[in-house]
Amino acid sequence: MKLYIKTLKMHIKATLEYKASFIISFLSQILVFFSYYFIILSLFDKFGNIKGFTLYEVLLCFSIIQFGFSFCETFIRGIDQFDKLIIKGDFDRLLIRPQNILIQVICYDLDLVKMSRLVQSLIVLVIALINLNIEWTILKLLTLILMLLSAIAIFFGIFLLAAAFCFLTVQGLEVRNLFTDGGKHIAQYPIGVFNKGFVLFFTVIIPYAFVNYYPLLYVLGKSNNTFYVLTPLIVFIYLIPCFIIFNKGAKRYQSVGN
């Protein structure tokens, strides 16, 4: 952990050396994010609700999933871009060092620009929460925190799995984007509004529904089932096989030579 914070500081310093380009990139990220936001706003402007969910309820859902994704994009960039690490042969260098390999990969890169998305998702979260009259209880607060944590966990898991596949294929897996970008797009909306088959897929295979559908129902008071409070924890169970697969891959790794 100490190591991680130290490298984090280093990366931040490095990025800030190029101030102008950092600021422009930061602004452009805000705009890109705005385009997602724009879709939801215009659709609600026309339709008013989606299967009974209002704008702010959907924004809450949206901001949580965006938070998890941008958190992973910012702070564990090394895993996100793992194929580059392998292709360049930098992974071999990491293997020599007497530190946990996963931590080193995480420390490898930090994308400060993506931080703007993180900030924005939090802003949207706050806006949504202010406008939703939720009667807060300790359990609901706990649910919200668990949702945020599990949002990070789910993307961490997907990134990790995709990285494990890089050991086999060397090249990055484009199909991964289906599960991150595609899943992200679906999970922007409360998953229950979709087809049964879809809901099942995103509950059992990739557990987006546990991140921000079932717990969302509880937070919004649409359901009183207290079991839903704990559903985000299921996502963490999914993380275990991801870790195992990654470690297995790392053990079998043969250098691509460089």
Partner: peptide, 19 residues
């Protein structure tokens, strides 16, 4: 990179590809 991104986001929205 940054400027091209800003430009292309605007172009992308106004072309009608997002909605």
């Amino acid at each position: 990179k940054g400027i091209v991104n800003i430009f292309s986001t605007v172009a992308d929205i106004l072309s009608g590809s997002t909605i």
